Simulated assay, not measured.
Amino acid sequence: MTIRVLIADDQSLVRTGLQMILDNTQDIEVVGEAGTGNEAVDLAAHTKPDVVLMDIRMPDLDGVQATKRIIADHGPDGPRVLVLTTFDRDEYVYAALRAGASGFLLKDSLAADLLSAVRVVAAGEATLAPTVTRRLLTRIAGELPVREDPRLALLTAREREVLQQVARGRSNAEIAELLCLSTGTVKTHVGHILTKLDLRDRVQAVVFAHESGLTGAQER
């Protein structure tokens, strides 16, 4: 199946470079380009992309607000947003994820990493640039307002354990080894967690866990 991608960036040279990388594959098709946040919102409605590559800083409507609008307009079955930017500052990362982005990648990433991120996000998973992942889970987490979320009561004890490890940045394989489970079982638990908490993907699960104070518990 071909992955339909919309590129949103205020620099035409960047858009051209991204299109050349993406179009040089058999499974990805660029369906539109936007130079402003409002254009990105409008084109997302008309072109129905699977993934929107979203720059943070754009005229008239920044990438965070454009992401929020796209997610609100199209719901859980709408486009996935992959934020692609030169700025790796923590506040940009967190704001983008809170807005509903499914991934965050820096513009100095390798072409292979970009293609991989697009495919991961299109498949309903989530991705973060390795250089910002740990910082998101540690530095920012300490600054978040923590409040017990009643939805935690919907999770079983094992699901809470799995969510705690997801929030610490561990992969399914790492969680499986730590909790003595199969990778398939961990994947099933993650799916149940997302469904019960009404979350789009793994990134939102990380944000939820930190905001609800789950990561403050003693690591097992």
Score class of each variant (00 low, 15 high):
20 M>A: 14
20 M>W: 11
21 I>W: 08
21 I>S: 05
22 L>S: 03
22 L>E: 03
24 N>G: 11
24 N>M: 07
24 N>W: 02
25 T>Y: 05
25 T>R: 06
26 Q>D: 14
26 Q>P: 02
26 Q>A: 11
26 Q>G: 12
26 Q>N: 11
27 D>Q: 00
28 I>F: 00
28 I>D: 00
31 V>G: 10
33 E>N: 14
36 T>V: 08
37 G>P: 13
38 N>F: 14
41 V>I: 07
41 V>S: 05
42 D>S: 10
43 L>T: 06
43 L>P: 04
43 L>S: 09
44 A>I: 11
45 A>N: 12
46 H>I: 10
48 K>W: 06
49 P>H: 05
51 V>I: 01
51 V>D: 00
51 V>C: 03
52 V>K: 05
53 L>V: 09
53 L>I: 13
54 M>L: 08
54 M>A: 11
56 I>G: 09
56 I>N: 04
56 I>Y: 08
57 R>L: 14
58 M>P: 06
62 D>G: 04
64 V>N: 06
65 Q>C: 09
66 A>Q: 06
68 K>N: 07
68 K>E: 15
69 R>A: 13
70 I>V: 07
71 I>E: 09
72 A>I: 03
72 A>V: 02
72 A>F: 04
74 H>L: 00
74 H>Q: 01
74 H>P: 02
75 G>P: 04
75 G>W: 02
75 G>C: 01
76 P>E: 05
77 D>I: 01
79 P>Q: 04
79 P>L: 05
81 V>Q: 02
81 V>L: 02
83 V>S: 10
84 L>E: 07
84 L>C: 15
85 T>M: 11
85 T>F: 13
85 T>I: 08
86 T>F: 11
87 F>W: 10
88 D>I: 08
88 D>H: 13
88 D>T: 13
89 R>T: 14
90 D>N: 13
90 D>G: 14
90 D>E: 15
91 E>D: 15
91 E>H: 14
94 Y>K: 14
95 A>V: 04
95 A>I: 08
97 L>K: 00
